[in-house]
Simulated scan of single mutants.
Amino acid sequence: MNKLEMTEKIMVAKAEKQLTWEKMGKALGCSHVWLTSVCLGMNSAPKDTAFSLTEYLGLEDDVAHALMVYPTKVWDQAVPTDPLIYRLYEVVGVYGETLKEVIQEKFGDGIMSAIDFSMDVDKIEDPKGDRVLLTLNGKFLPYKSW
């Protein structure tokens, strides 16, 4: 089973059981954002998490095995060469679909504004190496029906 087939099975089971990523994350004892990324095929799951998830959703072992496979993280875009910009681009490439899924689950069908938007960058000192904290704060803009 490939990652696309795995994701399709998970999404069908999630919808049939009327689950949210947050509820699934709590039930499995992990971050719902990380779990979303795993289920969308952009990260791999450890064996125990993979089998716990498939048991929770009532799915076959082949789904658990696909969850454990290391993904190839590719997207069809030109990649910037500046190292810092590249890493931000990588974050969106790897977690973009995850963010979209989680945001739309919480807010509905729409987008985060980049016009009514603020961003903050903080440094968090850490003995293992300083950390970068990015805060992106955009107004939610729902799509309108007409």
Rank of each mutant, 00 (worst) to 15 (best):
G138C: 05
M24N: 03
G29D: 04
E16W: 02
G93R: 04
E101P: 04
W146F: 15
A64Y: 08
V94A: 07
T81Y: 05
P80W: 01
M6P: 01
K100D: 15
V63D: 05
L136F: 05
D126H: 12
K47Q: 13
T36F: 01
I10F: 01
G138S: 05
S118F: 03
R131N: 14
K47R: 14
Q18R: 11
S145M: 09
D82L: 05
L99W: 13
M24E: 03
D76C: 08
V92A: 11
F117D: 07
D130Y: 11
Y56Q: 10
E22I: 03
D82A: 09
F107D: 08
N2R: 08
M1S: 10
V94W: 11
T81E: 12
V12H: 11
K23D: 13
W21A: 03
M11I: 08
L53V: 05
S52N: 14
M112D: 05
L134W: 15
T36I: 07
L4N: 12
T49G: 02
C30G: 09
K9A: 15
L57W: 07
V69N: 06
A45W: 09
E60Q: 14
K144H: 12
L141T: 12
Q18C: 09
E101R: 09
V12T: 11
H32I: 03
L136Q: 07
V121K: 07
W146E: 13
P127S: 11
L67S: 00
L67K: 01
T7A: 05
G41N: 04
M42F: 13
S31T: 02
G58Y: 02
G93C: 04
K73S: 04
W146V: 15
V91Y: 14
C39N: 09
L28Y: 08
L67V: 01
T72L: 13
E105S: 08
V102C: 06
K139N: 07
G29F: 00
E125R: 12
S113K: 04
K17S: 08
A15P: 02
I111R: 11
V38W: 03
W75C: 07
S52A: 15
E16D: 10
H32R: 13
G93A: 07
I124V: 15
A45C: 05
T135I: 14
T36D: 09
E97H: 08
L99D: 07
E97N: 12
L134G: 03
D120H: 12
A13C: 06
D109F: 11
E101N: 13
K144A: 14
Y89E: 12
M68P: 01
T81N: 13
E5C: 07
S113R: 03
E125G: 05
M6F: 05
Q77W: 01
L35K: 06
P142T: 02
L53A: 02
E90M: 07
F51I: 07
A66R: 03
N137H: 13
A64G: 02
L40Q: 02
G108P: 00
L133A: 10
D109P: 05
V121F: 09
D61Y: 10
L40G: 02
A78T: 13
T36E: 12
V91M: 11
M11N: 11
I85Q: 14
I103K: 08
L136H: 04
P46G: 01
L35T: 06
D61S: 14
D130P: 00
A64C: 04
D116P: 00
D120I: 00
Q18K: 15
L134S: 06
I103A: 03
